Amino acid sequence: GIDPFTGEAIAKFNFNGDTQVEMSFRKGERITLLRQVDENWYEGRIPGTSRQGIFPITYVDVIKRPL
């Protein structure tokens, strides 16, 4: 089901994660935001896939912030 505490964002740019914990994505992908890790990073996942990880806040347009 849908978790009411998650947020939502759209990727503004392609992001290629450097490490296992970073999640790569392509511009235009819809991302579920799980939490804000710190002032620069979100943790999120791509709905319908097993992809999950952290990524820079500046790479996405936030539609709804996670609670």
Results as ranks from 00 to 15, higher is better:
T32M: 10
R45A: 10
R51M: 04
K64V: 08
G44R: 00
P56E: 03
G17T: 06
D3L: 12
E43W: 13
G44N: 00
E39M: 10
P66I: 08
D3A: 11
T19S: 12
N16H: 12
P47N: 10
G1M: 12
N14E: 09
E22N: 06
N40I: 14
I2G: 14
F55Q: 00
I2M: 13
R26I: 13
D18Y: 14
D3M: 13
R30P: 05
L34H: 04
N16V: 13
D18G: 13
R35H: 07
Q52R: 12
F25H: 02
T49D: 05
K27D: 03
N40C: 15
N40V: 14
Q20N: 12
T32C: 10
I31Q: 00
L67E: 15
Y59M: 12
V21T: 11
P4F: 14
I63K: 06
A11Q: 00
D61T: 14
F13N: 08
N14H: 10
E39P: 10
D3Y: 12
G53E: 00
I31N: 00
D38W: 08
D38I: 05
E8I: 14
T19M: 09
Q20F: 11
A9L: 05
E39R: 10
I46W: 01
F25L: 06
D18R: 15
F55L: 06
T58C: 15
P4T: 13
L33W: 02
F5Y: 13
L33M: 06
E39W: 08
R45F: 14
P66V: 06
D61Y: 15
E29H: 02
S50T: 13
T19C: 13
V21E: 14
P4W: 15
F15K: 01
K27H: 08
Q20L: 13
P56T: 02
W41P: 00
T58F: 13
G53P: 00
Q36W: 07
F55G: 01
P66M: 06
L33N: 04
F55K: 00
D18V: 15
T6C: 14
R26Q: 13
P47S: 10
T32H: 08
E22M: 13
T6W: 14
G28V: 01
F15E: 00
D3E: 14
T19P: 06
R65L: 15
E43P: 00
S50V: 09
Q36S: 07
G48H: 09
G48Q: 07
W41M: 08
R35C: 09
G1P: 13
G28R: 03
D38T: 08
D61M: 12
I63C: 08
N40P: 03
F25K: 01
N14S: 10
I63Q: 06
R65N: 13
G44A: 02
L67W: 05
P4M: 14
F55M: 02
F13Q: 12
Y42P: 02
G17M: 04
A9Q: 02
R26H: 11
Q20R: 11
V37K: 05
T49A: 04
V62W: 06
K27F: 06
G17R: 05
F55Y: 01
P56H: 04
R35P: 01
W41G: 02
R35K: 09
D38K: 08
G28D: 06
T32I: 14
M23T: 01
K64D: 09
D61K: 14
E39H: 10
R45P: 00
I57C: 11
I54S: 03
P4Y: 14
F5T: 13
E29F: 02
D18S: 14
E22A: 08
T58N: 11
F55D: 00
E29R: 02
A11W: 01
Q36E: 09
L67C: 15
V60I: 09
Y42G: 03
V62D: 02
Y59V: 08
S50R: 11
E8F: 14
F5L: 13
T49I: 02
G1T: 13
Q36T: 06
I54G: 01
T32E: 14
I46K: 02
E43T: 04
N16Y: 14
P56K: 04
R65D: 15
R26M: 13
Y59G: 03
V21L: 13
T49V: 03
G7T: 10
N16G: 07
E29T: 05
V21K: 14
I57L: 09
R30T: 10
I54R: 09
G48M: 07
I2W: 13
G48T: 05
E43K: 05
R65F: 15
I31F: 01
E43R: 05
R30L: 11
K12S: 06
I54N: 05
E22T: 08
V62A: 04
I46M: 05
F55R: 00
F25N: 01
Y59W: 06
F13C: 15
R45S: 11
G44K: 00
S24C: 07
R45G: 05
S24N: 07
T58P: 08
R35E: 04
A11M: 01
V21Y: 14
F55I: 09
F13P: 00
G7D: 09
P4L: 14
E8R: 08
Y59A: 11
P56W: 02
Y42F: 12
E22S: 08
P56S: 02
L33V: 09
Q52S: 09
R30V: 11
S24A: 07
T58I: 14
T19A: 11
Q36R: 10
I2L: 13
F5M: 12
T6K: 10
K12I: 12
D18Q: 15
T49L: 03
E43Q: 08
D61P: 00
I54D: 01
V21Q: 14
F55T: 00
L33E: 04
N16T: 13
F25C: 02
I63F: 07
N16C: 15
D3G: 11
F5G: 13
N40W: 13
G1V: 12
I10Q: 05
G44Q: 00
W41V: 05
